[in-house]
Design a binder for these strands. Sequence first.
DNA 1: TTGTATGCGTTATCAA
DNA 2: TTGATAACGCATACAA
Lengths: 336, 336
Amino acid sequence: MKREHVTLKDIAKKLNIAVSTVSRALSDLPTIKDETKKMVMLAAKEMDYHPNLFAKSLKTKSSNTIGVVVPDLELHFFSSCISGMQKTCLENGYNLIICQSNESLEQEKFNIKTLQDSRVGGILISLSRETNSFEHLNQLKEHQIPFVYFDRVDENGSNSKVVINDEESSFEATQYLIRKGYKNIAFLCGPKILSICKNRLIGYQNALRSHQMNFESDWILESDLSRQTTSACIDFYLGLKNQPDAILAINDTVAIDCIRHLKKNNIEIPRQIAVMGFSNSPAAEIIEPNLTTVEQPSFDMGQTAAKRLLEEIRHPDALPSKVFTLNTKIIERDST
Amino acid sequence: MKREHVTLKDIAKKLNIAVSTVSRALSDLPTIKDETKKMVMLAAKEMDYHPNLFAKSLKTKSSNTIGVVVPDLELHFFSSCISGMQKTCLENGYNLIICQSNESLEQEKFNIKTLQDSRVGGILISLSRETNSFEHLNQLKEHQIPFVYFDRVDENGSNSKVVINDEESSFEATQYLIRKGYKNIAFLCGPKILSICKNRLIGYQNALRSHQMNFESDWILESDLSRQTTSACIDFYLGLKNQPDAILAINDTVAIDCIRHLKKNNIEIPRQIAVMGFSNSPAAEIIEPNLTTVEQPSFDMGQTAAKRLLEEIRHPDALPSKVFTLNTKIIERDST
DNA sequence: TTGTATGCGTTATCAA
DNA sequence: TTGATAACGCATACAA
């Protein structure tokens, strides 16, 4: 059973009125008689009318979809952000087109191009760990496509961003460990090209300094976030003569890999070495010992970023860019 | 710096040829001189031409996006499926619009309507646990919108589906437990409205029967997949005089909640009670003891579903529906 | 308050 | 091999 889509024309024909009248009625414009409006509404419902969004977009030069680019959809942090975005977008009649960069700059460029071709109204992006140039993003401005960074941002870019205060959160996490009595606190960092990593490292260093703590440059290691590298870092720590008694990891994934590898080496946690993470993913509650971590409001982050982007879409070039800094909270569990 | 989009017209004007010629050149149609084709291609690249997909879709009545509806984006199983879909879609020049039903039928209906309004070329869907009617899906056929089920399917629907053999996988999982020497094997099921739950239950029952095992109806419980309910089910098992010595759970989430609650009650796993799950999520490797589970090829499932949908989009009403049954594998770990 | 006419950027049909 | 022109479905300026 074939059935063509019902159009404004069909409704107009049936009611013997003009297409423009139908359009006005359905767009809820003021210049229309209440009676005809009701009539049109009724007919539209009866005939199962669905507006053709392509025609609408073609005409108005604005679409009802926004694009998202995340490094890895399977990481809970990002799927939770997306979940938040999805909610606000749906509430506002927008759709989400989702892309993954797989941590590759090349792929990220391609994603942006695809979204651009799809004429999205705006873009939400969290950078890949390879992203060291921003031309593919900044050219969006020339095309009048607003975009908002979240979590992994271009610090020097003039765009709106939604972040946590990485430096401060990391400072507080480190301070928490210091107050717990740990003396040799290591920092297992991620790719320093990412602002979140760079800033968390700074927060860690500032905390140590302001509490006049021991410090060894060997305690600062950089993992590429893979399990192998993290394990290798742990092995390195264990081989040190001045072994750390606590490890602050760049995120929960790395922290959990730490715990697993430490346990494999029969290190007791937290008695011999404590471990702390970043993000408060569901896995943090599952690993044993349960992971002490800095909670990042991922769902909220997604919502905030989406809300802001929608505003920028609605007020083109009227809005100065803005940085939203969300609060974090230390969740104390058994790994410290 | 404002910049309007470059259109076919702009290229035509610059080269002093007709719009239709430009269109033909860029569409790689045969009826065109090689020379002009090259000329147009060059100009298009130089002028940074991006086709307007809205106009294209409006004209051709087909869009390059497909929709996905999942119950919960934050569950790793689903985000992994989506990751697979994303890959094949991207390779084929399609975009993904993603919706969450949040396990609500009402929301699922709304999602379908939204996707329909967006004129997606097709839909990939895994049902909510509330979905007991399929009118909102079957009406898609009248609108010529193909859709493919994955994982949580309508068994009686005549659509293509991508599934695992739930009955057989569950039979084998149960048999595995039997061969391990467990005598009192319980089955902690999910909402039986879902075919996956119903069929896994059948597989479990068949396995017990064909091995002439003990069986108590009290051993079959139904969780709504929430942590509280699962804990309550465990409490119920522990209160039984004929206590189970192994629990086969409907999925990893439930299995992990089982383990956590059993440990809270100082039950040793697997010595006193063994636990087994379904899915092989990352958390299965993190929980202690590591969870024995049935691996479901989620990424592959997403790819297979997407590939099939694309075929159905390309050959409207030419294809008979097809069921893809993917293989599972028991991953033996320490919880059994 | 309503109708007429035009154009958004494509593709497709027909002549040339 | 190319060009002129008509649609696709909608919104909107303008006329009535």
